[in-house]
Computed example of a mutant assay.
Amino acid sequence: MNIATAIRTAVDTALRADAATVVAFGTSAVRLYPLTTPLSPVFPYIRMLVQVIGDDGACGEENEVNLTLEIFARDGSYEASAETVEAIAGAARKALTRQLPLTGHVMDDWRFEGDRPVSDPDVLTAHRSVSINYLTSATA
């Protein structure tokens, strides 16, 4: 399994299994889109973006993987939406800043990079961007 797919699978599994993330989504299921978002998504949801910076050295394949979670909510008011994305962002950060099991790879290190609000054009949608960096090695 390539590293991008392994990371997507591990993140999906970790977030769906994390009690705090499930609670932050409220009465809805955890909605996580790994590549693209549907045209009319149900809120709240997370869009997952994975960037792999490879290093195929002579000693083995090592990768730096940048994970970005774009979190969106649209509740009855902007304030309510902001509370929802803040709760989801906090839960996701805690669930993902640890060693995650990867198929065909080992997670050697991880670092929380940032959590920032992002301006959205409508008055009801809140949006946050969470970034985490992983260093991985391929297994034999």
Score class of each variant (00 low, 15 high):
residue 4 A to N: 11
residue 38 P to T: 05
residue 46 I to L: 12
residue 25 F to C: 04
residue 33 Y to M: 13
residue 123 V to H: 04
residue 80 A to S: 03
residue 119 S to W: 00
residue 21 T to E: 04
residue 110 W to A: 07
residue 1 M to I: 12
residue 129 S to D: 12
residue 120 D to N: 12
residue 119 S to T: 02
residue 36 T to L: 09
residue 20 A to D: 15
residue 102 L to Y: 14
residue 127 H to D: 00
residue 109 D to H: 12
residue 53 I to E: 09
residue 82 A to S: 08
residue 133 N to Q: 09
residue 75 D to S: 10
residue 1 M to V: 14
residue 26 G to K: 05
residue 81 S to I: 01
residue 98 R to N: 11
residue 59 C to N: 11
residue 39 L to C: 00
residue 106 V to F: 08
residue 114 G to Y: 00
residue 23 V to S: 12
residue 90 G to W: 00
residue 94 K to Q: 15
residue 112 F to I: 00
residue 14 A to K: 04
residue 51 Q to D: 10
residue 62 E to T: 06
residue 86 E to V: 15
residue 140 A to Y: 07
residue 17 A to P: 02
residue 104 G to S: 14
residue 102 L to T: 15
residue 54 G to P: 12
residue 90 G to Q: 02
residue 1 M to A: 15
residue 65 V to G: 07
residue 59 C to R: 13
residue 12 D to T: 14
residue 59 C to L: 10
residue 19 A to W: 02
residue 123 V to E: 10
residue 76 G to D: 09
residue 10 A to E: 07
residue 70 E to L: 07
residue 130 V to K: 03
residue 115 D to S: 05
residue 23 V to K: 13
residue 83 E to T: 08
residue 138 A to L: 07
residue 77 S to Q: 02
residue 31 R to N: 06
residue 140 A to M: 09
residue 16 R to L: 02
residue 8 R to Q: 14
residue 13 T to D: 11
residue 118 V to W: 06
residue 22 V to G: 00
residue 118 V to K: 13
residue 139 T to M: 12
residue 13 T to L: 06
residue 57 G to E: 02
residue 107 M to E: 07
residue 46 I to N: 11
residue 137 S to Y: 05
residue 104 G to R: 15
residue 70 E to I: 03
residue 92 A to F: 03
residue 61 E to C: 04
residue 43 F to T: 05
residue 23 V to G: 02
residue 93 R to T: 15
residue 67 L to I: 11
residue 86 E to R: 15
residue 54 G to I: 02
residue 61 E to A: 15
residue 114 G to N: 02
residue 9 T to F: 06
residue 118 V to C: 06
residue 11 V to D: 06
residue 23 V to Q: 13
residue 5 T to F: 08
residue 7 I to Q: 08
residue 76 G to P: 02
residue 111 R to L: 11
residue 66 N to H: 09
residue 138 A to C: 05
residue 22 V to D: 05
residue 85 V to G: 03
residue 89 A to M: 06
residue 133 N to P: 00
residue 134 Y to M: 09
residue 30 V to K: 08
residue 44 P to E: 05
residue 15 L to T: 07
residue 61 E to F: 07
residue 81 S to H: 03
residue 96 L to R: 11
residue 88 I to N: 01
residue 114 G to H: 02
residue 25 F to G: 04
residue 28 S to R: 13
residue 108 D to F: 00
residue 139 T to C: 06
residue 2 N to A: 10
residue 3 I to W: 04
residue 99 Q to C: 14
residue 62 E to F: 02
residue 43 F to M: 07
residue 63 N to M: 00
residue 115 D to H: 03
residue 140 A to F: 12
residue 93 R to A: 15
residue 37 T to M: 04
residue 80 A to K: 03
residue 51 Q to K: 14
residue 16 R to D: 01
residue 137 S to D: 07
residue 53 I to Y: 06
residue 80 A to D: 03
residue 122 D to N: 07
residue 109 D to P: 02
residue 68 T to K: 09
residue 96 L to S: 09
residue 23 V to T: 13
